[in-house]
């Protein structure tokens, strides 16, 4: 199988190649025109336990990947093999148990949708910070949000939960996802982020 990924920037070559491998291709040649793509494809193949060889120079490369993907390998998200940071340098601050002002039931569903979308999207935040009423979302009230937060953690997001707030709401022993933290660490994550989005 020959795949022409020239003119494509990462993560596209990796995603295209992974799609073929997922589909059962055991002998794949990918043409790319940049060294980052060579590096990322090589990293992916190596990590997935496949054989890989690359050839070419000066903007014209071929990567030859052989071997059969394991079931576990098929479940792996291709983006993580990209040298481009899979997690961008932004934080999300969740300070309430709902999103926006207005009807509380609608607000609860909106925050569920927001966390779901973050967990499914390409641009995973570097940190997800829960404070005040927001801590309730990861302390027993919300199985869906808890699941999605766990997924974010598995994709490289750091999740910090305000311990003072858990204590205040009587939820210290109910935390289901994330790490108990404090004001120092939570503020530090915000200061180190290029952008903090408050939900």
């Amino acid at each position: 199988m020959y795949l022409d990924a020239r003119g494509k920037q990462c993560p596209m070559p990796v995603i295209m190649a992974k799609k073929e491998l997922d589909g059962g291709c055991t002998d794949l040649t990918v043409a790319v025109d940049n060294e980052t793509a060579v590096k990322n494809l090589t990293k992916m193949a190596t990590n997935l336990g496949l054989s890989v060889e690359s050839s070419g120079k000066d903007g014209d490369y071929e990567i030859h990947i052989t071997g059969e993907l394991t079931a576990e390998g098929r479940e792996t998200e291709p983006e993580q093999f990209c040298e481009l940071p899979a997690t961008a340098n932004y934080s999300v601050f969740v300070s309430k148990d709902h999103l926006g002002e207005g009807d509380p039931v609608l607000g609860r569903n909106l925050i569920r949708m927001a966390i779901y979308t973050l967990s499914e999207g390409d641009n995973v935040p570097k940190s997800l910070l829960f404070m005040n009423g927001g801590v309730k979302l990861v302390a027993g009230e919300e199985p869906q949000i808890t699941e999605n937060v766990k997924k974010l953690i598995s994709r490289g997001c750091e999740v910090l939960v305000c311990g003072t707030c858990l204590n205040f709401y009587g939820l210290s022993d109910k935390l289901e996802a994330g790490t108990v933290s404090n004001m120092y660490e939570i503020l530090e994550r915000m200061q180190k982020s290029s952008n903090t989005i408050t939900l």
Binding site: V105, L106, N109, R112, M113, Y116, T117, E120, Q144
Partner: peptide, 18 residues
């Protein structure tokens, strides 16, 4: 209608999504 259904389908683990 979506919010009403969300309550109904909680028992079959319905997940709210955009």
């Amino acid at each position: 209608a979506a919010i009403e259904a969300e309550r109904l389908l909680a028992s079959v683990k319905a997940v709210v999504m955009p």
